[in-house]
């Protein structure tokens, strides 16, 4: 259920502005890969190229290849809609559908995939909410609106919604940046459990978080404002935080800039 991601020579543009330049990396299945780097270095943009969400912004385009196992996401004739059904995403701010109940939020993706049978939906919704460590908190109020939950619960609801459709990869764009430390811990624990089933890629500004949850870490940087972001290095998280190869990485993680 988890697939390897192989990126080669990937650049992304907003209009004529090149936001990220020539990025190549391999992301192993059933692992957590963290992207760190200063604001504006293109790590979120890069993340959004992995499920073709980048191109929903008017004028945005992508060059290069992203292979999911052996299938190029940017190959001709590939439907971005079906790519997004295989590569799930969790956003910076929790965004459950405000007009839907907790149950309907989790079931939304399943219904898009044509699953309508009540029994089948019930069991997948329960499984997904359990998978997101939210079931015990919401099982008595599945028909209440999702927007009534706390921020941390809403974010776990969004994770439940994303994993309900059993994606190959789960992308997380700063999933804890709007949450308090306790909710953050709950999400981090959850990430540790989810990586046994999914390939997880997480963007974070919190370096301790990257060190805690990830197996590998990629450091992005940009030469100056207005310049494209580049991948500086990617390695085992332990190595990045103890003995990075590149000086800029060490400067960044030790807080000397950024």
């Amino acid at each position: 259920m988890a697939k390897r991601i192989d990126v080669s020579g990937l650049s992304a543009y907003y209009g004529t502005f090149r936001a990220i330049d020539d990025i190549s990396m391999t992301i192993e299945p059933r692992s957590v890969t963290a992207f760190i780097g200063p604001s504006g270095c293109g790590k979120s943009t890069f993340l959004r190229t992995l499920n073709r969400m980048h191109e929903v912004v008017p004028g945005a385009r992508v060059e290069g290849k992203v292979l999911l196992d052996d299938e190029n996401l940017y190959g001709s004739g590939v439907d971005p809609v079906s790519v997004r059904r295989t590569v799930g995403m969790v956003f910076q701010r929790p965004n459950p559908f405000p007009t839907m109940s907790i149950y309907d939020n989790v079931a939304a993706g399943l219904r898009l995939n044509g699953i309508r049978k009540k029994g089948e939906l019930d069991s997948i919704v329960e499984k997904s909410l359990k998978g997101a460590n939210l079931w015990n908190e919401v099982k008595d109020r599945l028909n209440k609106p999702g927007s009534g939950l706390s921020g941390g619960q809403q974010q776990r609801l969004c994770i439940a919604r994303a994993i309900a459709v059993e994606p190959q990869v789960l992308l997380m764009d700063e999933p804890c940046s709007a949450l308090d430390p306790i909710s953050t811990l709950a999400i981090e624990d959850l990430i540790g459990e989810l990586k046994t089933q999914f390939t997880i890629v997480i963007v974070t500004h919190n370096m301790q978080q990257a060190a805690r949850v990830s197996d590998r870490t990629a450091f992005f940087n940009l030469a100056a404002v207005g310049q494209p972001g580049k991948l500086i290095e990617i390695d085992e998280t332990e190595r990045i935080f103890s003995n990075p190869t590149v000086q800029a990485t060490e400067d960044y993680i030790s807080g000397r800039f950024g």
Partner: peptide, 23 residues
């Protein structure tokens, strides 16, 4: 962000309108 929530689930343009915009 509500439209992106639907897009990221693999919704088509009409499904984004039905799931996020119209409600």
């Amino acid at each position: 962000m509500h439209e992106e929530a639907a897009l990221a689930l693999g919704a088509t343009r009409w499904e984004v309108i039905r799931l996020s915009v119209l409600p």
